[in-house]
Amino acid sequence: MTDDSTYPDEVAGPFPKPPTTFEDREGRSITVRHYDDHEDREALMAMYEAFDPADRAQGIPPTNEERIENWLDTITDDETVNVVATHDGDAVGHATLVPDEPERTAELAIFVLQAYQHAGIGTRLLKTLLGAGEAAGFDRVWLSVERWNDPAINLYEKVGFRASDTESFEHEMSIRLRD
């Protein structure tokens, strides 16, 4: 997505900055914090290896160890913004902003393990990622979601994303973090 006119005019937020700890709907203590390659890489590998194939969309996350490793190299490099949700030391969710053109624009991806879905973790993870992205200097964020994924679309709309392109196979949505 490159056309600024496809982003909402109004700035969304405010969004929390990491770290944040909360109790999910199941009573579990969840911490959302900045990704640290030394502390979180192994936990994210384990999370993605355990990821339910039914929850994969648009080919991500990848399905085998080598592909997951290569993909994580790309989405956790120095230019990206990443937050991880943890419970009892295990990664249970991950969200990333990958820089895109034009400058100060990023593409968003978010993943929550199936056993932790529908407990409010995705909402907190998403909001915290957007707060971290704003702090990192991103003005606009966009994403694509499969058009039949109503739970994800509802989550994005609740946080402030607006549909920007609904003509394709994927539903494109965008949000403005700063003017």
Rank of each mutant, 00 (worst) to 15 (best):
A54H: 14
P18K: 05
A50S: 15
V81A: 04
I60Q: 15
F22D: 05
E69L: 03
R67T: 11
P19R: 00
T74E: 15
D52A: 09
E69N: 12
P18C: 00
D88G: 06
E23P: 05
R104M: 00
Y35M: 01
A54V: 14
D90C: 00
P99T: 08
T76E: 09
L44E: 10
E39F: 07
H34G: 05
A50Y: 12
A91E: 04
A46S: 13
A91Y: 01
R67N: 09
G93H: 12
P61G: 13
E23H: 04
M47S: 08
D55H: 15
D37F: 05
M45K: 13
T76H: 05
D37R: 09
A91V: 00
I30H: 08
E103I: 01
D24M: 08
I68A: 15
R41S: 09
D36R: 06
E69C: 00
W71N: 09
D88E: 13
D36E: 04
N82Y: 02
V32R: 06
T76K: 08
D55K: 14
E23I: 07
T31Y: 10
T86W: 02
G59T: 07
E101A: 04
N70V: 06
E103C: 06
V32L: 11
M47N: 04
I75H: 05
V81M: 03
D77K: 02
I60E: 15
R67A: 04
D100S: 11
E66D: 15
E66R: 14
T21I: 04
R33V: 07
D40K: 10
T80Q: 06
E69M: 05
S29P: 05
T74Y: 14
E79Y: 05
T20Y: 04
T96K: 07
A54G: 13
A54W: 13
G27E: 09
E69V: 06
D36I: 02
H34W: 01
P62G: 06
E39V: 11
R33H: 10
T80M: 02
V83M: 10
T96C: 06
E42C: 02
R28G: 02
A43T: 07
T63Q: 15
D78Y: 00
N82D: 07
W71A: 04
R25Q: 14
P99G: 00
P19W: 03
G59W: 15
E66M: 07
E49W: 12
M45Q: 12
R104D: 00
V83I: 00
H38W: 07
N64G: 14
E101F: 01
P16D: 05
T20E: 14
P102W: 01
I60T: 15
P102Q: 01
M47A: 01
A57M: 14
Y35W: 06
P19Y: 09
A46K: 15
D88N: 06
R41F: 12
A106Y: 02
E69T: 11
E66C: 02
N64P: 10
A43Y: 09
E49R: 13
A91I: 01
G89I: 05
E39P: 00
A54I: 14
R41G: 02
M47H: 12
D24R: 11
D40S: 10
A43R: 13
D37A: 10
E39H: 07
G27W: 03
D52P: 09
G59P: 08
T105P: 02
T76Q: 11
P99L: 04
F51S: 13
V32F: 12
N82T: 08
I68F: 14
I30S: 08
T105W: 01
V32G: 11
P99C: 01
I30C: 12
H34V: 02
I30M: 12
D24Q: 11
V83Y: 08
R104N: 04
